[in-house]
Design a protein around this nucleic acid. Structure first.
Lengths: 205, 205, 205, 205
DNA sequence: GATGAATGAGAATTCATTCAT
DNA sequence: AATGAATGAATTCTCATTCAT
């Protein structure tokens, strides 16, 4: 039986842990920081979760769904470029709404994905492969510029997540301006041009 | 006076530290790991560097030059698209040759750039601003598609560094294939299309 | 809120620290020694105090009051010689009751008073200056031999604290006899003769 | 065979060690500090002395003679008060000329005389006992006020050494003035009054 | 004689985790 | 359900001493 208090406290802890883990990485974060952030005592954290590791694992577990959702929302029967553009926009929206989640994920991957390789190699890969096949089909049908599906997907990830993951750098370079200002227009132009089929690019020079 | 042994050992230490810090982050790395990796004893590390922090600082210090070089190599009197494309290629080359440096940098930024904000806000920003002005001029001259200069630069960074920083993920998704295979062709197409002036993009849908 | 256990353990620690710091000096003392003396584990010491430095500071903080009390007890409207003699007796009593505190203080001063100069230059100095003015007045009124006030005060300090600070030497020289045996009578004679006004000293020789 | 360089370097080391040990105590001092102070390399220190301990021991060894000399200079056939006064003056002079030696000694005694008990219990004690017998005889002969010999000697030590050992405190209280200014006159009066035989002290009050 | 290089044995401190209530 | 108290296992750093030249 899970009481209301239990639910609330687990939520408090996970939110605090997200804050701390995303900013400091797993090793850099301490239970003390999380406890303070959560407004709970350190032993109380361990009443709700077995260990620091367990908190982190729970956090990643929650993240996985969020992470897959935009991919799942792609409609194979939709318009190719519109679908891809919508996917990109959803990803960019995630960088806006869930930057800490993005950084938590980036931290994991940077360190070699020690706790996520299973997920990546199975669930994420499956969806990616499905999307890649779709892209390939769309390209073959001439509804999309011929493009390497995997690299296209990585480009979407890189370009959107960058705004969350490198937020600190962008702010410093843009004098504190909102990092995402103008980002959407820029990315829309970028992907519109990239994906348009039968396009002629004038030679460089 | 710096002896041969000093030079060799400092190099050994910095190389080991790069390996460990780039994989674990500053807090996650231990002097023990670095010492083992360097094949030296732990106190011997501290004979060459004052502290763990000092090793990390030395590493970042070395990184800065490497990090600015590609930007400095841009020729304002060159052909716009060729110059930008060449810059992108150099950055991609760095992800290939120096993935650990890229991850070291990414780790720092992810954690809010605690040790690099000064560098970013001054040296890097100055070069970026110069490049941005150049891009703006090129666009105004019609030699380049009208594009937000900052976002263009961020796009280059995001797309190239992604291959180093998210290497673990890419390998898992591509069944261990070389992450960079096909990347250059993909990015060249992407930037060629993005930067071509006077281009007509058919409406989506 | 301070619990009973906290009170008890803080007291245990400070007492053990007094024992060790007064005998070994700050640098010479180790947390291990203090922990053993206190019957607590080393990390438990640091649960109650932030650092070795903090323990030492707390100890000195407690000492300050004790150290000023005898000076504060001097009554400006009392009989000059009686007041000075009473002050001397209180100081001697402190060497008897709190020899470790005296040695803790002596250790600090010997090392240049790195942690006490503020206290000495302000609080202690103020009281000393007040006492010195009083002595000067008493001398001017003919109720006390004309005597340099500061040197008189230093003489009292030197003569009384010596029994605590040089205890080890005195014991060795007096075959282990109680160092303070006969001290009070001796010092009373010394100060009675020194302070008596209108006294004629026969020429030496 | 001892070369000139050896002699010079041993002297350099001992002088540097005196500086550091007297200010920091044995445990608080480091070979590094001594090496820097001496202008020699750390291993070179240990070429001349077997260990840190050995340097300290050598230093104390040198100190012993200095420490006994004033006592040895007392002339049993001289005038009692003149002899005692002269001894006091020599001791005060030592505080002026050799304050570091005084503090080195004080440090040792404060820590329970771990390295000097043998010396104190034998050589120093013998001289003190001789002096004490002399004082007793002088008092019995009516040439000196009746005074406890040991306490008289301790008083001389305490009053004179205080100016070296508590130098830091005295400076702070006297606004940086030379601690010894006025000390000799003060102590001469003090001992003149203390030692004068057949003296009548008016009742207190 | 002298010193750059190296290290084992501490020492202070941190931190995830457990205990007791 | 919660927390004050406590600690073992690191982890960074110091330092006297040794090694090699």
């Amino acid at each position: 039986m899970t009481t209301r208090i239990q639910k609330r406290n687990r939520k408090l802890i996970l939110d605090a842990a997200l804050e701390v883990f995303s900013a400091q990485g797993f090793r850099g974060a301490t239970l003390d920081q999380i406890a303070v952030e959560a407004g709970l005592s350190k032993p109380n954290l361990l009443y709700y979760f077995d260990s620091k590791e367990a908190i982190h694992k729970a956090l990643l577990g929650e993240l996985l769904t969020t992470w897959l959702d935009p991919l799942k929302a792609i409609d194979p029967s939709g318009d190719p470029r519109a679908e891809i553009m919508a996917y990109m926009r959803r990803k960019l929206q995630m960088s806006r709404e869930y930057p800490r989640e993005s950084r938590l994920f980036a931290n994991e991957i940077l360190q070699g994905a020690p706790r996520m390789s299973a997920f990546i190699a199975t669930e994420l890969k499956a969806l990616v492969d499905g999307f890649a096949a779709l892209i390939r089909r769309w390209s073959a049908e001439g509804r999309l510029a011929p493009v390497d599906p995997h690299h296209l997907i990585f480009s979407i990830w890189a370009l959107t997540q960058h705004y969350a993951d490198f937020d600190a750098q962008i702010r410093l370079i843009r004098d504190g301006a909102d990092p995402l200002e103008g980002a959407e227009a820029h990315l829309e132009m970028l992907f519109a041009r990239l994906l348009a089929p039968a396009q002629v690019t004038p030679p460089v020079g």
